[in-house]
Amino acid sequence: MKAAVIVFPGSNCDRDLAVALEKSSGKAPIMLWHRETEVPQDLDLIAVPGGFSYGDYLRSGAMAAHSPVMREVKRMAEKGVRVLGVCNGFQILTEAGLLPGALMRNRDLKFICRDVHLKVENTDTAFTGPYTKGQVVRFPVAHHDGNFFADDELLKRIEGNGQVAFRYAAADGTVSDATNINGSRNNIAGIVNEKGTVLGMMPHPERLIEPKLGGADGKPMFDALVEALS
């Protein structure tokens, strides 16, 4: 699998993603600076990392979504190249129009930094294939703007298409307002595009890839990507 990690000024999870990808594939991903206008055409996966790209100016992800490298990412995503956006990466992908909806300030206005339980919904993608539908995984979150919004019509479409990948849940898999950490509509923590080739999620799978880090629930995602895309 040939992977690239995009690096914006203010990205801070780019190295974590690179470590996770290298650990699963045995090959270090290419790091692509935001000013790049030429991207290797044989990439299998593009990862858009978490952080505070461009200082979250205007809106989280808004400036990064229009950076030179994102034009290439968009073009390649349209060709079916897999794109994974984590945290700020998810915000960037919605701002770039690669994923529907928007990510707003958390309902309680607080920055949330802790492990959360997620219920896996759609397992029919290269990202979520190794999990089983309804499985509960534990990933860390660290965000201020993770409150997923879509209007009623859009929400219906996202749900109807099975685009929800993860929902904030309790350890036993219950999904309720009490487990909705940030006010996201329908507890949505991660979604895919209609083709299932682009995944955006607020929680960080790359931060839990080995027991030494406190858990390894994120590892299967990277292993599965390597398997599917090699």
């Binding site: 205007l58 919605t94 707003m104 919004f149 859009l154």
Partner: peptide, 9 residues
């Protein structure tokens, strides 16, 4: 439309 506002919200 392109940058200043996010017309989703």
């Amino acid at each position: 439309k392109e940058l200043l506002a996010n017309t989703v919200i």
